[in-house]
Structure formats: C-alpha cells, structure tokens
C-alpha cells in the first residue's frame, strides 16, 4: 500500500509529522493514511510531531484531536510532541483545553509516554 504521508516505524510505534497547514483534502488524506497504516503495520502506538507548526488555530487543533481519536479507535496509543512554546501559550489563551491527547515536548519523551501506555495495556 502506498502512503503519501511520511510515516516512520520504530518497533510497534508509528511516527508521523504535520509539516504545514493542511487543506481539507490533505487533512482527510493524512487521517486515512495514518489510520490505515496502524492496521497494516500492526502498530500499537502513534506519535504525531507538530514541531513544524508555528501557528495552530482551532481548525488545526481539531484536525489533530480528530486524528488522535481515530487512531485510538483502531487501537493505538497516541502522543503529540514538539508543540512550540508560543503555540501552547496561544492555545491556552484562546481558552479551553484544545488537546485531549497526551502532549510532550520532544520525541524521546513522546516515545517513552506511548510505550508506558502500551505497557499498562499489556
């Protein structure tokens, strides 16, 4: 199967990243790719890296949340990593908790977090 979304596999963890703002079409492509890949590659966890995003508005936040929820529905633990400090500040200023996913600062912490979550499950 061919995926347009960049996906790295590390053991049972899939690592992907969002590079720029996505259009509606790209969003659904990204979500489909990721959710399918979880099944195909038999992944137990997903880490989404968003360090390239210097702006996250409520639309992008929703995209990230939805993706995480979908990934969880097909049985993967999810962590989002690399959120820029000023983006985090802006998100909380906008109000409401915009992410209902585990978030970490760097990839290493994200991997540790999803591994711990997978271990609990087993």
């Amino acid at each position: 199967m061919n995926f347009k979304t960049p996906l790295l596999q590390l053991g049972d963890v899939l690592i992907t990243s969002i590079q720029t703002d996505l259009s509606d079409a790209q969003v659904s492509e990204f979500q489909q790719d990721l959710v399918r890949a979880i099944g195909v590659k038999n992944a137990n966890a997903v880490v989404i890296d968003i360090s390239a995003l210097d702006v996250v508005d409520s639309f992008m936040a929703r995209v990230i949340n939805d993706t995480a929820r979908a990934a969880r529905l097909v049985g993967a633990e999810v962590a989002v990593c690399g959120i820029q400090p000023y983006v985090a500040m802006t998100l909380v200023e906008m109000g409401r908790q915009l992410f209902d996913v585990q978030t970490t600062f760097n990839l290493e912490q994200a991997l540790a977090a999803v591994k711990a979550a997978v271990d609990v499950r087993l």
Binding site: C81, I83, P85, A88, M89, L91, V92, E93, Q97, F99, T103, T104, F105, N106, Q109, A110, A113
Partner: peptide, 12 residues
C-alpha cells in the same frame, strides 16, 4: 490554570 495547561502541552 492557563499556565499549568500550557506547561502540560509541553509535557511538563
């Protein structure tokens, strides 16, 4: 709460 939430987003 905002400060705490923002820190939380950075995994702290």
């Amino acid at each position: 709460i905002k400060t705490v939430n923002a820190a939380h987003m950075l995994g702290c």
